[in-house]
Simulated scan of single mutants.
Amino acid sequence: MAVQIGGLIGLYGGAALGILSWWLGRRIVKKQRGLDELYEHIWQKSRSISWFFTLTSIYILFSLVIFGIEIGAAMTLAIILTVHLASWGITGMILSINMNMTEPLKPSRVKFGISVVVVSLITFSIISIVTGNWWFLIASIPPNIIGLISALTPDKNKEN
Rank of each mutant, 00 (worst) to 15 (best):
I9L: 14
L24H: 10
I58K: 02
A73K: 05
I9M: 06
V118G: 01
V116Q: 04
R26D: 06
T76K: 10
W51N: 04
T56V: 10
V117P: 00
G14E: 10
S50G: 11
G132A: 00
A74F: 04
I5C: 01
T56M: 10
F62E: 04
L35I: 14
W43E: 09
T82C: 03
T153E: 01
P104I: 03
M93P: 03
G132L: 00
G7E: 15
L20E: 04
L137S: 06
S96F: 02
G34A: 07
Q32P: 01
S150V: 15
F124D: 02
E159V: 14
I49E: 05
M93N: 03
G10D: 05
I66C: 00
F53A: 15
L20Q: 01
V130Q: 04
F112M: 10
T76N: 12
E40D: 10
I114T: 07
M75C: 01
A139P: 00
Y59L: 14
K30V: 01
M101H: 12
A2C: 01
L148I: 09
L85K: 03
R109A: 14
G6K: 14
S57E: 08
G72N: 12
I71Y: 01
S57L: 06
I79N: 07
R33N: 15
W51C: 02
K31R: 15
L35R: 08
M1R: 05
T123Y: 05
I80Q: 05
I80P: 03
T102V: 12
T102E: 11
L8S: 03
N144I: 15
R109E: 09
I145N: 08
I146F: 12
I49D: 11
F67T: 15
K111N: 13
N98Y: 04
T131V: 03
L38R: 13
W88A: 08
K158W: 10
K31A: 14
L11R: 12
S140R: 04
T54V: 00
P154F: 06
N157H: 14
F124M: 06
M101A: 12
P143C: 07
Q4I: 01
G147K: 07
L81F: 13
F136Y: 15
F112N: 03
V117D: 02
L8E: 10
A139F: 12
F124I: 02
I71M: 03
K156C: 00
I149T: 08
H41A: 08
G89W: 10
L35A: 05
R26N: 14
P142R: 13
I97R: 11
G92P: 09
S63A: 15
G92A: 05
P107Y: 02
A73N: 10
L8T: 03
T123V: 06
G10M: 07
H41P: 00
L121Y: 02
I66E: 11
V116A: 06
L55M: 09
L24V: 15
G132Q: 02
V117M: 15
S87R: 07
T123W: 04
V116F: 04
I60E: 00
V83I: 12
W51V: 08
M93S: 10
Q32H: 11
V116G: 03
T54N: 02
S120L: 02
K31D: 09
N157F: 07
R47N: 09
T91N: 13
S57Q: 14
G13H: 09
S21T: 14
F136A: 02
